[in-house]
Each structure stands twice: as C-alpha cells, then as structure tokens.
Design a binder for these strands. Structure first.
Length: 116
DNA sequence: GGGGTGACTGTTA
DNA sequence: GTAACAGCCACCC
C-alpha cells in the first residue's frame, strides 16, 4: 500500500491536502478523508485537524467536509456558523436544516476519485 | 508518562 | 425511523 503521507510531517498536512482536493460543489465526509490518509479509524482526528485548519496558512475548505450523515456538525466552529451553509449553497450544494441535500449526489470520495 | 478531550463512525437495541 | 454505547487516534496540559 502507498505510504506517500509518510512525507508529511504531521497527519494534518495529509488531511488538508485531501480536503483541498475536494472540487467545488462537492462535499466529503470525515471518514472518507481519514481513510484517504490511511487513518480510517481516525475520523475524529480529521475533525481535530479541522479545528486547527483556521490557524493554518493555506485556507482549507472545511465547509466541504461534513459528517457521514451529511450534517454540518462543524458549522458551529466557523466564524459565523451560517458561513458554512452559505458557502456550500454558493457552490451549488443545497443545504437545509444544517443537512446537505442530495448528499449521495454531491458526495465526493477522495479514495475513489484519487484512485488510491 | 498519564489523563482528558474531540468538527466521527459503526453496531446494537 | 431514532437512541445509546463503545472504539478509535492524535493533540494538549
């Protein structure tokens, strides 16, 4: 199995890289990102990394990362929580009641798309 | 080195 | 369909 993430000093870089790879108008789940970096069981680590994503230099589209149910669990961590939904809707993702509509349609699997 | 925390997930009832 | 429990790994004090 590939261990490219080994080049990363920390797991965060790998996570951020995957999140940045998410195309506009699409969303992914913490578990998918975790699996893409080789930490399938570390979905929580992805969330923790996102917590720090506001501090890192390269901006990370954390608003494109939602939980397995398509719920915007991390919206409360945004400057204005409404910004997350706003960004998603602006990119063409329908969001209602903090939940991504057509989640299976807009879902973007990094492992599959990146052919990992 | 040990304990507590978390933007999660899967299974079971 | 929802609700609750346990497992998981990295970071901070």
């Amino acid at each position: 199995m590939p261990k490219e993430q080994k080049d990363k000093d920390s797991i965060y870089d790998a996570i951020y890289d995957v999140v940045r790879a998410v195309p506009k108008g699409r969303v992914t789940s913490y578990g998918a990102v975790a699996a893409a970096i080789g930490a399938a069981s570390g979905a929580r680590l992805v969330g923790y990394a996102m917590n720090n994503c506001t501090d890192i230099k390269p901006k990370v589209p954390a608003h494109r990362v939602v939980n397995r149910n398509g719920l915007l669990t991390g919206k409360h961590h945004f400057s204005p929580p409404e910004k997350m939904q706003q960004l998603l809707e602006k990119e063409g993702v329908k969001v209602k009641d903090d939940m991504v509509q057509n989640f299976d349609k807009v879902f973007w699997d990094p492992i599959k798309e990146l052919e990992m």
